[in-house]
């Protein structure tokens, strides 16, 4: 997802001269194509995420669409208040980009496990969460975010993520993308898409698979109609169950108890917190993927 991100961002920045990229001293081997081509719009804020986020807001208030880039929890939790007050409350076009979301940096330990970020970001009014499921959804998300500038959070996996679409899909906020048809649905967000497709061939045979790459507080209203067309919806996420995507979906449909009763979730258990290992191993320990 990282290379799709930077390729697409460079392509968009060639057209939109207000796109700027600020990195928090991370991105070696990733961000150079942007830095080399647009040196006037590239900044390294240093290891200083609070200043990075507020400064991005300041630039955005002067007409830039700023992308801040760092890994795991650094561009979110470290500067949560700056995102809340300076970016989201002011309604400014800053896209916070986190790479290595979920357990992609599994071996690096708890500091690098981004498994509570949805809980943080979805609590902010006006914040659009972009959680693509594969590199083609990354491109689709970026195109949407640039066409609709505002406070947003782009949650990326790592390099070498598999592709699940044939072409860049058309996406809209709150709208489920169908990858496999079915009356019962595994509805995935972010990098859990691979796990959802795998479950549809193992523990959940016969299930359809949908991906929801754009969501947030503002898109809740569109969920009930979509959920009502399925017999069962299982939300899937590489994030703790608490405050995550499944919680969001359940809240979104809870006005109709009959529909809400069809919703359940497969998310990470907190038993994964503090454990160390490969992403695959930790996703299995956390209960996202099947262990057979």
């Amino acid at each position: 997802m990282r290379s799709a991100f930077i390729e697409e961002l460079v392509a968009l920045a060639a057209v939109h001269d207000n796109i700027a990229l600020i990195v928090g001293d991370l991105g070696f081997g990733v961000i150079e194509p942007f830095a080399d081509r647009f040196p006037d719009r590239f900044f390294n804020a240093g290891v200083a995420e609070q200043n990075m986020a507020s400064m991005a807001a300041g630039m955005a208030s002067e007409g830039y669409h700023v992308f801040t880039y760092s890994i795991a929890n650094f561009p979110t939790f470290r500067c949560a208040e700056q995102i809340r007050n300076d970016i989201a409350y002011h309604g400014l076009p800053v896209t916070t980009v986190a790479v290595g979301a979920g357990l992609a940096y599994g071996s690096l330990g708890y500091s690098h496990h981004a498994v509570q970020d949805y809980a943080l970001m979805r609590a902010m009014p006006g914040m659009m969460i972009a959680a693509p499921g594969d590199p083609l959804e990354v491109r689709a998300c970026l195109r949407w975010l640039v066409a609709n500038p505002g406070p947003s959070y782009l949650r990326l996996g790592k390099s070498g993520d598999p592709r699940f679409h044939d072409a860049v899909p058309d996406i809209e906020p709150g709208k489920w993308l169908t990858l496999r048809d079915g009356d019962r649905i595994l509805l995935s967000t972010g990098a859990a898409l691979g796990a959802a497709l795998a479950r549809a061939q193992s523990s959940h045979q016969g299930f359809g698979v949908c991906s929801l790459p754009l969501w947030g507080m503002a898109t809740k209203a569109s969920q009930l109609d979509q959920a009502s067309t399925a017999q069962t919806v299982i939300a899937m996420e590489d994030h703790l169950a608490d405050g995550g995507f499944g919680s969001w979906l359940w809240e979104a449909v809870s006005a109709d108890p009959a529909i809400a009763a069809r919703i359940s979730s497969i998310a990470l258990s907190d038993t994964v917190c503090g454990q160390v290992g490969s992403q695959a191993a930790l996703n299995a320990i956390g209960g996202l993927t099947c262990t057979q």
Binding site: F43, A53, M55, A56, G58, M59, A60, S61, E62, D86
Partner: peptide, 8 residues
């Protein structure tokens, strides 16, 4: 920090 972004 916000002002620094504006000045930048």
């Amino acid at each position: 920090s916000f002002g620094t972004g504006k000045a930048l």
